[in-house]
Amino acid sequence: MTLRVKDLKVYYQTLRGDVHALDGVTFDLADGEIMGLAGESGCGKSTLGKSLIRLDSRMRHVGGSIELDGKDLPIADDDAMVPFRYHEISLIPQYAMSALNPTRKIGRMINELLRARGLRPADIAEELERRLELVGLDTDVLNRFPIELSGGMKQRVVMVMSTLLNPSLLIADEATSALDVSTQRSVAESMVEFRDRGYVKSMVFVTHDISLVYQMADTIMVMYAGRIAEKASTSTIINNPQHPYTQMLISALPEVGSTAEETRLEGIPGTPPGLLHPPTGCRFKDRCPMAFSKCNEQPPLLEIEPGHWAACWKTG
């Protein structure tokens, strides 16, 4: 499976105008690749995930294309997308835990999902048990209502549901962020295992925990204000980032054991620009310590060395 996203533009329509949540996003995802997707809150990560599955009524496909194995993905056509969902592409939404139907027991919910996809629950029962075990859940959860589970337990239930049909591409949006580190580790490791065993082929792993992505992803893509800032192999992004935003993002991470008394950490000063009327030129320029006159023009996303992409006038 290979995914090819080209100059994708998806806007939200609001009364005050269009929110340019994805404004020219371009990247490739190779067969078997696990890509971490990072970036400040509100930069469009979830919008990208949703765009690959279903545009809701307020989202508008303004331009660009998505290709899956050479086939154009009809993202603007809800009905034409049906055969792709769950089978080809599956999404674990952010806050999946609040999306579970409160009136259904977990087991019944899973059975309904399977039947809707034309499968007999009995045929899948054994596999379901194995996967629950893999993420550290007791099969007893099948007899419980969502309200009876903790946040992390619900998150893992959704993860198992979304991967049960072995989608080619799995998008996990903050799927481990409500988990304690030990469960997070086992879930992250089982996701790599899902890939290694071929349950899923490629994965986009949206997270704010760059140190978690470091443990499991092959590549990392950093977004800023609706655009791609940089994409490269995990070790390049962590050890040798080129885009000023990535550099600041990585150095803002504390080491284990630092305390407020010793050193007060500082985030990146300033806030990202609003996407209702995004500024022209480089979107990072108001916060960028390296900005110069050229930055009033939009920097193109260029491959600065094989497999390493960056959009900045200083790196090109």
């Binding site: 970036g39 400040e40 704010h208 985030g267």
Partner: peptide, 20 residues
């Protein structure tokens, strides 16, 4: 309760400094 888990590192630090 897990108020920083969905925030990016930079914002997390701001929220933590705020708690401080």
């Amino acid at each position: 309760d897990e108020i920083i888990s969905m925030l990016d590192a930079s914002t997390r630090i701001d929220v933590l400094n705020l708690l401080g």
